[in-house]
Protein backbone atom coordinates (compact mmCIF):
# COMPACT_ATOMS: atom_id res chain seq x y z
CA UNK A 1 0.00 0.00 0.00
CA UNK A 2 1.33 3.44 -0.88
CA UNK A 3 0.91 4.87 2.57
CA UNK A 4 3.02 5.34 5.66
CA UNK A 5 1.70 4.10 8.97
CA UNK A 6 1.60 6.39 11.97
CA UNK A 7 4.49 4.45 13.49
CA UNK A 8 6.49 4.85 10.29
CA UNK A 9 5.85 8.59 10.21
CA UNK A 10 7.02 8.84 13.80
CA UNK A 11 10.15 6.86 12.91
CA UNK A 12 10.93 9.22 10.03
CA UNK A 13 10.39 12.25 12.24
CA UNK A 14 12.91 10.75 14.64
CA UNK A 15 15.51 10.57 11.88
CA UNK A 16 14.99 6.92 10.83
CA UNK A 17 14.40 6.78 7.06
CA UNK A 18 13.95 3.00 6.85
CA UNK A 19 10.15 3.20 6.25
CA UNK A 20 10.94 4.76 2.89
CA UNK A 21 12.84 1.62 1.91
CA UNK A 22 9.69 -0.39 2.51
CA UNK A 23 7.51 2.11 0.64
CA UNK A 24 9.90 2.19 -2.32
CA UNK A 25 10.32 -1.59 -2.59
CA UNK A 26 6.58 -2.27 -2.22
CA UNK A 27 5.52 0.27 -4.82
CA UNK A 28 8.46 0.21 -7.23
CA UNK A 29 6.56 -1.34 -10.15
CA UNK A 30 3.58 0.99 -9.83
CA UNK A 31 5.81 4.05 -9.51
CA UNK A 32 7.80 3.16 -12.62
CA UNK A 33 4.60 2.39 -14.51
CA UNK A 34 3.03 5.66 -13.38
CA UNK A 35 6.06 7.70 -14.37
CA UNK A 36 6.44 5.89 -17.68
CA UNK A 37 2.81 6.70 -18.48
CA UNK A 38 3.17 10.34 -17.49
CA UNK A 39 6.35 10.81 -19.51
CA UNK A 40 5.08 8.75 -22.45
CA UNK A 41 8.05 6.36 -22.18
CA UNK A 42 10.55 9.09 -23.07
CA UNK A 43 13.11 8.20 -20.41
CA UNK A 44 15.30 5.21 -19.64
CA UNK A 45 14.53 3.03 -16.64
CA UNK A 46 17.70 4.33 -14.90
CA UNK A 47 16.63 7.95 -15.29
CA UNK A 48 13.15 7.15 -14.01
CA UNK A 49 14.53 5.24 -11.03
CA UNK A 50 16.83 8.10 -10.19
CA UNK A 51 14.01 10.64 -10.42
CA UNK A 52 11.77 8.53 -8.19
CA UNK A 53 14.53 8.12 -5.61
CA UNK A 54 15.06 11.87 -5.76
CA UNK A 55 11.34 12.37 -5.13
CA UNK A 56 11.52 10.09 -2.09
CA UNK A 57 14.34 12.23 -0.78
CA UNK A 58 12.22 15.35 -1.19
CA UNK A 59 9.35 13.61 0.60
CA UNK A 60 11.52 12.97 3.67
CA UNK A 61 11.54 16.70 4.27
CA UNK A 62 7.77 16.97 3.80
CA UNK A 63 7.04 14.10 6.19
CA UNK A 64 8.89 15.90 8.94
CA UNK A 65 6.42 18.77 8.71
CA UNK A 66 3.28 18.57 10.87
CA UNK A 67 0.96 19.36 7.97
CA UNK A 68 2.15 16.33 5.94
CA UNK A 69 -0.78 14.62 4.20
CA UNK A 70 -0.41 10.87 4.23
CA UNK A 71 -2.59 10.13 1.22
CA UNK A 72 -1.69 9.40 -2.39
CA UNK A 73 2.04 9.52 -1.63
CA UNK A 74 2.81 7.58 -4.80
CA UNK A 75 0.91 10.09 -6.93
CA UNK A 76 2.84 12.86 -5.23
CA UNK A 77 6.14 11.06 -5.80
CA UNK A 78 5.41 10.47 -9.49
CA UNK A 79 4.57 14.18 -9.82
CA UNK A 80 7.85 15.27 -8.24
CA UNK A 81 9.82 12.74 -10.29
CA UNK A 82 8.13 13.94 -13.48
CA UNK A 83 9.05 17.57 -12.73
CA UNK A 84 12.62 16.54 -12.02
CA UNK A 85 12.96 14.74 -15.33
CA UNK A 86 11.46 17.71 -17.15
CA UNK A 87 13.73 20.21 -15.38
CA UNK A 88 16.82 18.05 -15.92
CA UNK A 89 16.17 17.98 -19.64
CA UNK A 90 15.95 21.78 -19.72
CA UNK A 91 19.19 22.41 -17.87
CA UNK A 92 21.42 19.61 -19.20
CA UNK A 93 23.32 21.86 -21.57
CA UNK A 94 23.94 24.81 -19.29
CA UNK A 95 24.98 22.98 -16.13
CA UNK A 96 28.65 23.40 -15.41
CA UNK A 97 29.21 24.53 -11.80
CA UNK A 98 29.71 22.97 -8.40
CA UNK A 99 26.12 21.82 -8.35
CA UNK A 100 24.43 19.37 -5.94
CA UNK A 101 23.32 16.87 -8.61
CA UNK A 102 26.81 16.76 -10.06
CA UNK A 103 28.39 16.28 -6.64
CA UNK A 104 25.91 13.52 -5.89
CA UNK A 105 26.63 11.77 -9.18
CA UNK A 106 30.33 11.92 -8.46
CA UNK A 107 29.88 10.50 -4.94
CA UNK A 108 27.56 7.73 -6.15
CA UNK A 109 29.95 6.71 -8.88
CA UNK A 110 32.86 6.77 -6.47
CA UNK A 111 31.02 4.55 -4.04
CA UNK A 112 30.30 2.17 -6.88
CA UNK A 113 26.53 2.54 -6.57
CA UNK A 114 26.14 2.81 -10.32
CA UNK A 115 28.04 0.30 -12.37
CA UNK A 116 28.77 1.17 -15.97
CA UNK A 117 25.51 -0.23 -17.23
CA UNK A 118 23.35 1.56 -14.74
CA UNK A 119 25.00 4.93 -14.30
CA UNK A 120 22.34 7.58 -14.94
CA UNK A 121 24.88 10.13 -16.09
CA UNK A 122 28.53 10.91 -15.66
CA UNK A 123 29.42 13.76 -13.34
CA UNK A 124 30.38 17.06 -14.93
CA UNK A 125 32.65 18.10 -12.06
CA UNK A 126 36.16 19.06 -13.06
CA UNK A 127 39.26 17.62 -11.38
CA UNK A 128 39.60 20.47 -8.91
CA UNK A 129 35.95 20.22 -7.88
CA UNK A 130 36.24 16.47 -7.42
CA UNK A 131 39.30 16.96 -5.24
CA UNK A 132 37.36 19.45 -3.17
CA UNK A 133 34.46 17.02 -2.67
CA UNK A 134 36.91 14.32 -1.57
CA UNK A 135 38.57 16.68 0.89
CA UNK A 136 35.31 17.95 2.37
CA UNK A 137 34.15 14.37 2.93
CA UNK A 138 37.47 13.49 4.51
CA UNK A 139 37.36 16.57 6.75
CA UNK A 140 33.84 15.66 7.88
CA UNK A 141 35.09 12.25 8.96
CA UNK A 142 37.82 13.88 11.02
CA UNK A 143 35.39 16.16 12.83
CA UNK A 144 34.69 15.42 16.53
CA UNK A 145 31.53 13.45 17.28
CA UNK A 146 29.94 16.47 18.97
CA UNK A 147 30.44 18.72 15.98
CA UNK A 148 29.41 16.05 13.48
CA UNK A 149 26.25 15.38 15.47
CA UNK A 150 25.37 19.04 15.66
CA UNK A 151 25.93 19.70 11.94
CA UNK A 152 24.03 16.54 11.00
CA UNK A 153 21.02 17.62 13.04
CA UNK A 154 21.08 21.12 11.61
CA UNK A 155 22.07 20.50 8.01
CA UNK A 156 21.06 16.93 7.20
CA UNK A 157 18.03 16.39 9.37
CA UNK A 158 17.15 20.08 9.01
CA UNK A 159 16.03 20.47 12.59
CA UNK A 160 15.50 23.92 14.05
CA UNK A 161 17.59 25.38 16.86
CA UNK A 162 15.06 24.54 19.54
CA UNK A 163 14.83 20.88 18.45
CA UNK A 164 18.61 20.60 18.33
CA UNK A 165 18.95 22.27 21.71
CA UNK A 166 16.54 19.79 23.28
CA UNK A 167 17.97 16.69 21.60
CA UNK A 168 21.61 17.50 22.27
CA UNK A 169 20.86 19.09 25.65
CA UNK A 170 22.45 22.48 25.09
CA UNK A 171 21.77 25.21 27.63
CA UNK A 172 20.20 27.63 25.14
CA UNK A 173 19.68 28.30 21.46
CA UNK A 174 22.47 30.86 21.66
CA UNK A 175 24.89 28.10 22.70
CA UNK A 176 23.76 26.02 19.74
CA UNK A 177 24.57 28.93 17.41
CA UNK A 178 28.03 29.59 18.87
CA UNK A 179 28.89 25.88 18.94
CA UNK A 180 27.79 25.56 15.34
CA UNK A 181 30.02 28.43 14.18
CA UNK A 182 32.93 26.95 16.13
CA UNK A 183 32.36 23.59 14.42
CA UNK A 184 32.12 25.19 10.98
CA UNK A 185 35.39 27.03 11.62
CA UNK A 186 37.06 23.78 12.64
CA UNK A 187 35.73 22.09 9.53
CA UNK A 188 36.97 24.93 7.33
CA UNK A 189 40.40 24.76 8.91
CA UNK A 190 40.57 21.01 8.40
CA UNK A 191 39.56 21.45 4.75
CA UNK A 192 42.18 24.13 4.19
CA UNK A 193 44.89 22.02 5.86
CA UNK A 194 43.98 19.06 3.69
CA UNK A 195 43.90 21.23 0.56
CA UNK A 196 47.34 22.65 1.38
CA UNK A 197 48.90 19.29 2.15
CA UNK A 198 47.38 17.94 -1.07
CA UNK A 199 48.93 20.82 -3.03
CA UNK A 200 52.35 20.18 -1.49
CA UNK A 201 52.22 16.61 -2.74
Amino acid sequence: MCKLSEIEIRKIRNGDNSPFNRLYADNYDDLIKGLRGKTKSKYSIEDMEDAIQEAFFVITKKVRKPNFRNDNICGFIVGIAYNKLRDDRKKTDRMQGFEVDEIERYISRKQGIHDEDFSPKFSNLNDEQRRKVDIILKALEKLSDNCRNLLTKLWEEEKNLEEVRQELEYASNRVVITTKSRCVKKLRKEINDLLNSDKQK
Partner: peptide, 26 residues
Protein backbone atom coordinates in the same frame (compact mmCIF):
# COMPACT_ATOMS: atom_id res chain seq x y z
CA UNK B 1 26.73 26.63 0.62
CA UNK B 2 29.73 24.67 -0.58
CA UNK B 3 29.91 22.57 2.59
CA UNK B 4 26.21 21.98 2.75
CA UNK B 5 26.04 21.05 -0.93
CA UNK B 6 28.53 18.25 -0.37
CA UNK B 7 26.85 17.07 2.84
CA UNK B 8 23.44 17.20 1.15
CA UNK B 9 24.71 15.33 -1.93
CA UNK B 10 26.30 12.66 0.27
CA UNK B 11 23.10 12.25 2.27
CA UNK B 12 21.08 11.97 -0.94
CA UNK B 13 23.47 9.45 -2.41
CA UNK B 14 23.33 7.31 0.75
CA UNK B 15 19.55 7.58 0.85
CA UNK B 16 19.20 6.44 -2.77
CA UNK B 17 21.59 3.58 -2.14
CA UNK B 18 19.36 2.37 0.69
CA UNK B 19 16.27 2.52 -1.53
CA UNK B 20 18.05 0.55 -4.23
CA UNK B 21 19.21 -2.05 -1.74
CA UNK B 22 15.67 -2.46 -0.36
CA UNK B 23 14.27 -2.92 -3.86
CA UNK B 24 17.00 -5.38 -4.79
CA UNK B 25 16.27 -7.40 -1.67
CA UNK B 26 12.60 -7.65 -2.62
Amino acid sequence: VELRSVIFAKAKSDFKQQLKAAHQKT
